[in-house]
Every structure is written in structure tokens, then in C-alpha cells.
Design a binder for these strands. Structure first.
Lengths: 238, 238
DNA sequence: CAAGATCTTGGTCGTTCGACCAACTTTGGA
DNA sequence: TCCAAAGTTGGTCGAACGACCAAGATCTTG
């Protein structure tokens, strides 16, 4: 094989490993299978990675990073259509609806991708050294989702009645549940009906904002009118 | 080892395999590990099961059967406290709340159990011969949940505005999502807050029944007033 | 042009795996 | 009592695994 610097070979091996995991599963992702997929001898793998677990850790880092940007893109940017008058609350539900629908499109198009994510999550759970890492990854996802939710809510002229952090966590819970359930029964129509119920249910957590307060003080990200720090105080419905 | 008939040894091996899967994961569940856990020589395993995959299939059958009865017990029997007057709609939400809380108690008490279920689900997904089986298992779970939901709704004097089958599927989606999310971040308090939101959201799908129609015609299981056959017709809010 | 650093390669350990088998013991009915 | 069926046991086979290494090839720097 042509001479390759370590970082490039590292990337190639990670990409090959992701393909193998998606196609054959983590259990079948041996060092030899990865090397064969990457088209390089087995020794080259151990020249870059000290062990198989080291490579799999790098794989997990890569796919979780991609997972986070995917999570942020679930909520589409509402800038395209400025919110018209009336039925503003329904707009947020529609936003969630199209976002979840977009995710389901991706899921149905290449289920192996999500299966691979689930398998890697379980592998992480089984590896004591990485259990804490996973906790941090999910926390980051929630925190990355909060400003996206705040921006969407602001565009729809509504505000959450519960801490946005809980809404973000609820959204992740919903996406995870929709994924595993669809993977189990492959019922596309039922999954989309359930996704519609989920979108309506989450949208029901948002209340329309007073029109005079719409152009009010809260413009910086963080959404000060909906408990941005997501602390211990329980949701108090006014 | 003392002489054992095949069915008993079969049960013992399945139980041992379940313990190994919960403790060490599917990947570490080798024939030798199972035999050691059961305290019997390796040859005895292959005398009962033709192959490791055969044993794992039996394991999956056993745990999915247990999973179904667990799913039915998520909705506690409402017979203990006869519905008082007023706030009948809140009663159904409370029922869901306690049911989900009970499940979370179990999840936090022994997470290995649910991790094992997830691993076995993924193993089933990866095994082409069993992919169809899993579809059927989930369908059975939905169908088992429909009469439970119908009974709970009747006791709470309310009826679903969407097909009960979709509600059952939504409940399974919620439980799956709550499980995976808690396993990832281990945030018990946040999980229970999200579970409360889920319970409220599902309860919002039910509308109070007219008091004269409460003792009406629908007494047999199947709940004729809420689209029991879960067909294609979309939910029409009256 | 040297020489050290950086890659590349094929081969080889020791271990563990699933599957298999021949010999042995126990059981229960003829 | 005898004997076939049922059950038990320890050992062995080939294959695949992760890890490692020595030797060669190539690049880069002085």
C-alpha cells in the first residue's frame, strides 16, 4: 500500500471500522475484518492503534460527534417561513412534526446506521472505562439541543412551560424510543402516527407568548423566560 | 452431576445463560461460560442444544415472554381504588404515572436486566432468521396492551381519542426511550420528570366519558368506543 | 549523501471459541 | 435379570481471534 501518514491511516481505519460495524455488527468487527475492509495488512492497524478497544473508542467518538450534529438538525431552522398570524402554537408542533419525519426518513433509508449506534452504545455501557464518557456525551447533546429549542420557540412566538432542558431530554427519549420500536416491528405507518402524537404532546408543553412581549428583552440565546438552567425547581404551571 | 432429564437441564441452561448475558453481555456468553455458570461440563450443553445459536434463541424466547407480562403489569389494576367523583381524567394520568414509576424502580434496581434485553434485541436484529420473529413479538405486546389500556380507561371513565393500538405502541416507544436514555446518563430525577411529562401527554389523548354512557353498552374487552382494530383511519377529534 | 525517523509487511505466538466424539454410567421396561 | 435407551464426561479438533515482532522499505533531515 502507498505510504500514508498516521493521521490519514487513522481516519481510514475508523471509517472502515464504522462500515464493518454497520454491516456486520460489533461482534463481527475484528481487527482482521477492519484491516480487510480498509485494504491494508493487519500489522498496519496495530501500528496506529494500540489495541482493538482503542480503535473502537475512536469509532465511538466519531459516530457520537456525528450523532450530535444530527440531533441538532432534527429541529429544522424556522427562518424559512416567517410565522404568520394565528395558530402560532400549531406552528411549533408542525416544526417538530417535520423534524421527526425527517429523522424517520433517514432511519428507514439506512437502518444499519442506527443499529450500529445502538450497538456501540451498548458496547460503551459494557466497558466500565467509557461508562462515564457516555453520560457526558448525552449531557452535551441535551445542552446542544436547548438553544435550538429556544430559537424555534422564539420563532413560533411561544415559550415552554417546563425547563427547556427537560424538553430536550424528552426529545432524545422520543427519538430513541421511535428508533428502537421501528427497528423491532418495521411498521413505518404506525411509527409516523406515533411520531405525530409525540410532536403534538411536546408542542402542548409550549404556551403562546403575549404579542407585546414577543419583541421583548430576551434576544440572546439562553431563553431567559423559560428556565434555561434546568435546575431542580419543579415545573410550576401558572 | 446428578442425572437430569433433558427438559430440566434445558431450563437450567437457559437460566444460566440469562445470568451470564445480564452479567457479562452477549459477546461474552460463550458455551463454556454458560456451562460453567450452570455447573455442568461443556458436553452436556451440546447434548441438549444443537448449537450456541439454538440456545440463544431459546433464551430470547424466554426473556421476551417475561417481557410481555412485565409490559402488561406497567398499567396497574385500577380496581383497588374505585374512581371518586371529579378529576376523572387526572386519574388516568396518575395511573400511567405510577405505572411508569414502577417500571423505573425496576430499571434502577437492576439495570443489567434491561441491558440484557437490549443486547438480545440487537442480536435478534442481526440474525436474519429471527428478524421476523421480533416483529411478531412486538405485535403481540401491542395486542396484549390494548385490553389493559381499555380496562384502565373504562375504570377512569374516559375513552381514547386515537386508536388504542397506537396508544399501546406509543407506550412501548416511551418505555424503550426512557430505558435507553436513563441507561445512557443515569439521571434518575430527570428521567422521572420526563416520565411525568410522558404520562401527562398520553393521558391528554383520553377524553372524559359522558356519565350516562359510562355504564353503557361496551363491557366486553375490546373497547368498542375507541377504535379497537387500530386501522388506517386517522384520529378524528370530536 | 548519509542516517535516523517513519512507515510497511508478513509471519507467529498463545488463547479462546464452537463443535464433535468415543467411552462410560445410569435408568427403566421386557 | 438383561439390555437398549437415555444421560454424562473429558478430551480433541480446526478455526478465528488479539497482540506482537523482526526485517525491510521509504521518507526526511542534517
Amino acid at each position: 500500500m502507498t505510504r500514508l501518514p498516521v493521521p490519514e491511516r487513522r481516519r481510514a481505519l475508523i471509517a472502515a471500522a464504522i462500515r464493518v460495524v454497520a454491516r456486520d455488527g460489533v461482534a463481527a468487527t475484528s481487527t482482521r475484518a477492519i484491516a480487510a475492509e480498509a485494504g491494508m495488512p493487519l500489522g498496519a492497524l496495530h501500528y496506529v492503534f494500540v489495541s482493538r478497544d482503542d480503535l473502537l473508542a475512536a469509532v465511538i467518538d466519531t459516530v457520537t460527534a456525528g450523532q450530535r450534529v444530527a440531533a441538532e438538525s432534527v429541529l429544522p431552522h424556522p427562518d424559512t417561513q416567517p410565522p404568520a398570524s394565528g395558530a402560532l402554537l400549531h406552528t411549533f408542533g408542525a416544526l417538530l412534526h417535520t423534524g421527526l419525519g425527517r429523522f424517520l426518513d433517514l432511519l428507514e433509508a439506512e437502518p444499519e446506521r442506527e443499529v450500529a449506534v445502538l450497538e456501540l452504545n451498548l458496547y460503551t455501557l459494557r466497558t466500565p472505562a467509557m461508562a462515564g464518557t457516555m453520560r457526558a456525551e448525552y449531557e452535551e447533546t441535551y445542552q446542544a439541543l436547548v438553544p435550538v429549542l429556544a430559537r424555534a420557540a422564539r420563532a413560533c412566538r411561544c415559550a415552554s412551560t417546563v425547563p427547556l432542558r427537560d424538553v430536550a431530554r424528552l426529545l432524545v427519549t422520543a427519538v430513541d424510543g421511535l428508533t428502537t420500536t421501528w427497528l423491532a416491528d418495521r411498521d413505518c405507518a404506525a411509527t409516523r402516527r406515533v411520531a405525530a402524537l409525540v410532536a403534538d404532546g411536546i408542542a402542548a408543553l409550549f404556551a403562546p407568548l403575549a404579542p407585546d412581549a414577543a419583541a421583548g428583552q430576551g434576544d440572546e440565546p439562553g431563553a431567559p423566560h423559560d428556565h434555561p438552567e434546568g435546575g431542580l425547581h419543579h415545573a410550576d404551571h401558572p
